[in-house]
Design a protein around this nucleic acid. Structure first.
Lengths: 151, 151
DNA sequence: GCGGGTTTGCTGACATGTCAACTACCGGTT
DNA sequence: AACCGGTAGTTGACATGTCAGCAAACCCGC
């Protein structure tokens, strides 16, 4: 085996920085959101549903949009159902399927949490960056995801 | 309360992209590393220790460098000790303290995993980016961490 | 040399997410 | 009408990490 191409100093800075940012920033943003009784995962699910007029989405569609594994979504919906944030309904015409449906409590929860969450994301990330940095961050994510989602 | 400053389209792209990148890329890199029997967390701990001539580091120092909580580190060291990757020794002169010490098995494990891990990080992130993007990613992480670590 | 605040680390309860195995169903074939 | 590969979703075992609370040891001024 040839000697691997180790990371340069610049590359190491980016990689370690990314990992540390992920540890600390996500933790802090989650803490802020937890003050409203939601996790970021709850928020992700609720905001998908809240975007729809009827607040209902096929579970498989939800999984595709969030890029979550089936199992992750299933476990998480179970927890959210228990807390009354969403409901699980059957799909007419496909007995395998399920639909996640926003409840009144779920809609209320995300309406209450949204302003604080946006403020937290701004405070800990977006407002610290220049427009150029924001654009590049979007570019980076796009490239990485494109590669991973390539069939 | 005034209307919150919602995210613009560009900002939303960066934020959601970051979250998705984090979900998928980290999962894939972890999978690759798991083929060598380590998690990324294991790798982080082991590489800190392997950088030292004697492979020994005070637990508090390790926590500071990794930016891990005490509890996280304590739990993780317990698991690594059980697997024989590190040892836990007492600190002469401070009976509260503990030292994490790289074992032979631990040193062997990281030597074996390192080339594949670097390749994985390159494949899924670094080699997809331009030098400028790598630099900006480092800048972003630096800004975010500076804010979070401000005492 | 003692009290009180600080530091260090561990633990238990709980939330989250992975993987792999499983159930059930759909739809087109034979 | 039985079959069969693919799809939808659930579940159980396990790994990881958070928080809160605890215990022991340290240090410093009195």
């Amino acid at each position: 085996m040839p000697e691997p191409r180790w990371l340069t100093e610049e590359e190491m800075r980016a990689w370690l920085g990314y990992r540390r940012m992920r540890n600390l920033m996500d933790l802090q943003i989650n803490r802020d959101l937890a003050a409203d009784g939601l996790s970021e995962q709850d928020y992700d699910v609720l905001s998908q549903l809240a975007d729809l007029p009827d607040g209902r989405m096929r579970v498989s569609e939800l999984g595709t949009r969030l890029r979550w594994s089936r199992s992750r979504l299933s476990h998480h919906l179970t927890r959210m159902v228990q807390r009354g944030l969403v409901g699980r309904d059957e799909v007419p015409g496909d007995a395998r399927g399920a639909v996640a449906a926003l409840t009144d409590a779920g809609g209320e929860a995300i309406r209450a949490a949204a302003p604080g969450h946006v403020a937290s994301v701004r405070e800990h990330l977006i407002d610290l960056l220049t427009p150029q940095e924001i654009r590049v961050l979007g570019d980076i994510a796009e490239k990485v995801l494109e590669r991973l989602e390539a069939t």
